[in-house]
C-alpha cells in the first residue's frame, strides 16, 4: 500500500516527507526499544514507535526503514525533524495507540516484518 493510504487509515499528520506519499510499504515493526528494532526490523518496513528522539531517526536510517509512524499523538523535537529531513525519512504522527495503529494497518493488509521470533531469548 502507498504511504498516503497509511496516512488515511491512521488519520495521521505528515511531519516530514510530503513528497514521499507514493512510497510502497507492505510490512511493519512496532517497538519503543531501539535495540529490538535493530535486532528484528527489516529494510523497507514501517516503524511504529512512541519514542521521538533523534535516535529513532538514526535507527531508521541504519535499517533503511521506509517511514516512521509516531503513535499516541507524539510530536518529534525540532532536532528529530531536522535529522529526518536531512536523511529523507518520512515521519507521520497518529493519535491512535500502538495497539490500534498496528491493528488498523494489519486489517488493511500490512503484516509484521516477522511474525514470531525463533526462541524464547528473543532471537531470530
Amino acid at each position: 500500500m502507498k504511504l498516503s493510504e497509511v496516512r488515511d487509515i491512521l488519520d495521521a499528520e505528515i511531519i516530514v516527507g510530503e513528497d514521499c506519499l507514493d512510497l510502497e510499504v507492505h510490512t511493519a515493526f512496532g517497538a519503543d526499544l531501539m535495540s529490538d528494532v535493530l535486532a528484528f526490523a527489516k529494510a523497507g518496513s514501517l516503524l511504529l514507535t512512541g519514542l521521538t528522539n533523534t535516535q529513532v531517526i538514526r535507527t531508521a536510517n541504519v535499517l533503511d526503514i521506509a517511514a516512521i509512524i509516531l503513535v499516541r499523538g507524539k510530536k518529534p523535537s525540532s532536532e528529530t525533524i531536522a535529522l529526518a529531513s536531512e536523511l529523507k525519512i518520512p515521519i507521520l504522527t497518529t493519535k491512535y495507540i500502538l495497539f490500534e495503529t498496528a491493528g488498523r494497518l494489519y486489517m488493511k493488509g500490512i503484516v509484521g516484518c516477522l511474525s514470531k521470533v525463533e526462541n524464547t531469548s528473543g532471537r531470530t
Binding site: 535495540s35 529490538d36 535516535q55
Partner: peptide, 16 residues
C-alpha cells in the same frame, strides 16, 4: 534508556 537503548542487547546485536 530514554534514547531507546540500555536493555542489555547492544553487544548481542553486535555479535549477531
Amino acid at each position: 534508556r530514554e534514547m531507546g537503548f540500555g536493555a542489555g542487547m547492544g553487544l548481542c546485536n553486535i555479535k549477531n
